[in-house]
Design a protein around this nucleic acid. Structure first.
Lengths: 166, 166
DNA sequence: TCTAACCTTGACGTTGAGGTAAGTTATCGC
DNA sequence: GCGATAACTTACCTCAACGTCAAGGTTAGA
């Protein structure tokens, strides 16, 4: 687990990371990284001559988004993939905002992105609402527990008094 | 899938349901019901003479809570079990609030219930916060998309004008 | 009492999400 | 160019959470 070799510093502009570094920094295993790649959740990163994977900062950001969605929503990876893909459309659009051609095609893409995002949004809104309700119920319950505890305490001290009296 | 026989109407007070009815009404499969029982998520229901399972209304309520937690949190069943069990402690305490003996024992139980509930509460609070943040980000994104769409529309109509002119 | 519909247990299969091990190849510092 | 360390692929394993028969017992209604 000790990392002796330095990260490849050859890259001048962007700092590329090998799989071990990425694993360490993000807390996922190398296996998981390869697995996600296999499943299309992460797109194949660039490689060194010898085939070693080199992850860019954007790759890592995507991974973090995946982690987050997975943890927060608990959905199967296939759905997570869809969601992250939808985000990517946004970046794509922003990137190639130049070419004047194919405007209507761009519109179609944008429409789709909007649709997906809206679905996502509704889903999350619903979940927030449900969870909030659950939260308030738990609050109530904790209050009730507090009351009971007080009562119990009173009864206990009362008992002690009786016993010491006898 | 067609249900021809009526539910057992023999029970005068509480309406007990057979496994098929429960499955139909709750949307889970019979297999899942047996599986949850096996895993301790549902306690063994009462049975008819011949061994047919008979679920009470409270059994079903417990099942619904399980479904809800599973859907909202996406946790493994083992954890869901813990959570639902914690709720049950509450009911237990309420039920046997009579016996004056073993007060301190009751206190211990209550303390544990409080602890578990607090853990649950914190967890959910955190989740709500995270999801709310994600929600607002999605909102932003949708707004941005809207702007882009407007721009696109403008460009498109401009294009059309040019073409018709030529 | 007979039968259609329902239920029982048992056992094996499947899918998702990785873990683990083996054998081989790369990289890097010396 | 060598040795240590890290990565690569391939393949099999695991665990959770059910699905899917198969073979037989139960129940209610005619």
């Amino acid at each position: 687990m000790v990392r002796k070799r330095l990260a490849p510093e050859a890259a001048p502009d962007e700092p590329y990371l090998q799989i071990g570094e990425v694993a360490e920094r993000t807390g996922v295993t190398q296996r998981t990284l390869r697995f996600y790649e296999e499943k299309g959740l992460l797109k194949p990163p660039t490689r060194m001559e010898g085939g070693f994977r080199l992850y860019s900062e954007t790759d890592i950001q995507r991974l973090e988004r995946i982690k987050r969605l997975k943890q927060l929503l608990g959905f199967p990876l296939a759905e997570i993939k869809e969601m992250v893909d939808a985000e990517e459309v946004k970046l794509q659009l922003k990137a190639e905002y130049r070419p004047e051609a194919a405007l209507s095609q761009k519109k179609a893409q944008l429409l789709k992105a909007i649709e997906v995002t809206e679905r996502q949004y509704d889903l999350i809104r619903q979940k927030v609402a449900d969870l909030a309700e659950m939260q308030s119920k738990l609050e109530e319950r904790l209050a009730t527990f507090g009351d009971w505890m007080e009562q119990l305490e009173r009864q206990l001290t009362a008992n002690r008094k009786v016993k010491t009296k006898v």
